[in-house]
Simulated scan of single mutants.
Amino acid sequence: MEKYAVVVAGGSGMRMGTAVPKQFLPLRGKPVLWYTLTAFLDSFPDMQIILVLPEQYLETGKEILRSTYDPNRIWMTIGGETRFHSVRNGLQHIKKHSIIFVHDGVRCLLTPGLIRRCFDGAVDKGNAIPAIKAVDTIRIETVNGNMQIDREKVRIIQTPQTFFSDLIKSAFEQDFHESFTDEASVVEKLGVKINLIEGESSNIKITRPLDLLIAERVLEEREMGL
């Protein structure tokens, strides 16, 4: 089965408070995005990666690709106005029947093991969305104020969100809607049941300076075999 990862890295550095977008910030001597790409390269020897970047950062992207151990399995395309449009741009480059992973470029701590579990889940049920249980008390805003909800029924959604190519490519033929906050929401709009699998608590999204500190610690522990 052909395998393609669409890695979306079109974010800015606004919440990080840096001039450089967070996907390019240094993490233990390498850009954040380098770790994301390496995890996918390590997951399957035949994994192909489509990296979606803002046009003004294509040269930076090329430098990162050249620093990986197998740049021939990675190519780039330009992002769009929203995440939805960026993913659609990436999907247009995939012509073969395959399993497609869509991943946030700044979730740089994902493991090859998670990628392989997503593959198995998608092959089995058509799609696989990694998720973890909520550990905090959850309250939801209502017209009457707010109310506590059962956190045991809450799942925090991660990426890579993984689908058969025919399914996700068909879903992305729809017009954009504000409710499309991730790929699962786009596919679900077709009436498809979403299959959740166990994610990884370390699979955080690098958004704020604290996240970089956490990522450094996680990578350090992995290097030490902890």
Rank of each mutant, 00 (worst) to 15 (best):
K153N: 15
V32A: 05
E198Q: 14
F163D: 03
R88L: 13
T82S: 15
I50M: 09
K125F: 13
L109P: 00
R28P: 05
I132W: 02
D211S: 01
W34P: 11
K30A: 14
R73V: 03
I132E: 05
L33T: 02
N146Q: 13
A9G: 13
F172G: 10
Q148S: 15
Q148N: 12
I194T: 11
V8I: 13
P45M: 02
R208H: 12
R28M: 08
N127C: 15
I197E: 05
D211L: 00
H97R: 10
Y4R: 01
L114D: 07
S86Y: 11
M1T: 07
G29P: 08
G13P: 04
L114S: 09
V187Q: 06
Y35K: 01
E183M: 09
M224Q: 14
S43A: 14
E63G: 14
Q161S: 12
P31R: 10
S98M: 03
L53D: 06
Y69I: 13
A128G: 06
A215S: 11
I140G: 10
Y69C: 12
D211I: 00
N89T: 04
I115E: 05
G225D: 05
R28D: 15
L196G: 12
V187P: 04
E2Q: 12
S67G: 05
L109R: 00
I168A: 14
D42S: 15
A9T: 04
D150M: 08
G105V: 00
L210I: 08
